[in-house]
Amino acid sequence: MAGEIPLRNIWLLFLYAADLVQYKNSFERDVEAARDLPDLVGRLIAHVVEQRLRRNLSRGYRTRAAVLPRVRGRIDMLATETGQLMERGQVACQFQEHVMDTPRNRMVRAALDRLAARISEPETAHRCRSLAADFSRVGVANKRPSRAELGLDQIGRNERTDRMMVALARMVFDDTIPTETMGSTFQPGTDASEHLIRRLFERAVGNALRLELEPQGWRIAQGRRIDWPVDVSTLGMPPILPGMQTDIELNNPATGRRIIIDTKFTRILTSSNFRGEILKSGYLYQIYAYLRTQERNSDPPSLTAEGILLHPQVGGAVDETMIVQGHQISVRTIDLTADASEFEASLRQLVRLANSTSLRNESVGGEIAQLLF
């Protein structure tokens, strides 16, 4: 199924997922030439890094301690006296060095090393390998920084190229690019491609909604784990109880409205022997469980939370809604084979849905009333 989606639309999903949608009209040549998403990321990061190296990498300050023949920075009196350094004409100092070995540059070098080992396209892999060597020559260490280190290395408004480099590097280490590492990552191939694009789809929709809705007072959460409302259980039940995790959750504190969106990268309908095409029951049960298990009187939005099953469009479009035990549940499709403007229009339709009043008293209520009266 992934092969039916044009690469340009995968590129658009990638941009939304990486919070880089402002670059959607850039790098068209690299987008067209890329064989797959890892190759695309490698081409993009290589292009941006080559531009950055022409103007020199950004520098940062690093604290260093050393024994010197003259004072530099602050004197470490304890180390100086303990080592009796002054008798030998030396002094222990702590000072700031202006270096290129910053967390952001180490992150980019680590990403280049990883991509060089995993990209199947020889030319792109060679570019990544050469650029990683260039980083080494200017003193950037081959050590991936921690999240805390990256958090302290704030990127300024004018450092546009650095922002692009770091965002691409984060994607490499964020399970969005498939790898061959044993464990929780994914082998290249059909299954990996399906998982990869589903992850891109989920993150792209979530980030698009965040960009549009957060300025309007909404709170957007992605990947929130929720618990089963267990009152009593045997000792062996908790270890075998499956976990629950929502894909996207929208909350509006001002209106008390909550919407849970579950994204799937599969057909929304399946064939039935007796009724033609019907909704896949497992997905419907899943969104129902997300809504009903979280009901709590102490949390009023949970009592009327809405659910949306969002799938890519395969065949005809689907846009239907029902109310089940006080919860509005919608099933919708979005066309990923359309051009970029149509795809973004579909995302904006989701935004309009989130901003509109509940359908409970409008179209659905009207249809039910017509049936009853």
Rank of each mutant, 00 (worst) to 15 (best):
R224P: 01
S358K: 05
S358R: 09
R118I: 11
L303S: 08
M165H: 12
Y23N: 02
A317D: 05
I220S: 01
R258F: 05
F173I: 04
Q286S: 06
L250C: 13
L350H: 07
I220T: 03
T80I: 10
F343W: 11
G83R: 12
S136E: 15
P229F: 02
R55S: 12
A34D: 04
E362A: 15
T102N: 04
R275N: 14
R8M: 01
E295K: 13
V21K: 04
T333F: 04
I259Y: 11
R258L: 12
L347E: 07
R198V: 00
D247H: 09
R332V: 05
V99D: 12
L78P: 00
G326F: 12
R104I: 01
V48A: 11
P238F: 07
L211E: 07
R224M: 03
D153W: 04
I119N: 07
D134Y: 15
P69F: 03
G89F: 04
I334M: 12
R70P: 00
P242A: 02
E367A: 14
V31H: 01
G60Q: 10
Q96P: 00
D101R: 09
G42H: 06
R332W: 07
G60T: 10
S302Y: 08
R203M: 06
R198C: 05
R72Q: 08
Q222G: 04
T270Q: 13
G365S: 15
I197H: 00
T82D: 06
I268R: 02
L37T: 09
L336T: 11
N251I: 02
E121S: 12
L131A: 12
A18G: 06
G73C: 01
D247C: 09
E367L: 14
Q294C: 07
V49R: 05
R292P: 01
G282Q: 13
L291E: 04
F343A: 06
Y288V: 14
L78Y: 00
Q96V: 01
R74P: 02
Y288C: 14
P188N: 06
E342S: 13
D76T: 00
V108W: 00
S184N: 10
G217W: 03
A111G: 08
T161R: 09
S120I: 10
V172L: 09
M322K: 01
E159N: 05
Q294Y: 06
M86N: 01
S120Y: 08
V351D: 05
D113I: 13
Q187S: 12
D191L: 08
T185C: 07
A33S: 05
E342V: 14
M77H: 03
G316W: 00
S120A: 15
F14I: 03
D175F: 13
D339L: 02
P6E: 09
D39S: 07
T304L: 10
G366L: 14
I334N: 01
G366D: 13
E50K: 07
L347H: 07
G60C: 09
S193E: 13
L12S: 12
P188T: 14
I10G: 01
R74V: 02
A65P: 00
Q222I: 08
Q90Y: 03
G307F: 04
A167L: 13
L279V: 13
R163D: 04
S302W: 08
R59L: 11
V166S: 11
R267I: 02
F265Y: 15
S120F: 08
G236E: 11
H311K: 10
K264I: 14
D299C: 03
L57F: 14
P238Q: 05
R109L: 08
P300C: 08
R348L: 13
E121N: 15
L68T: 03
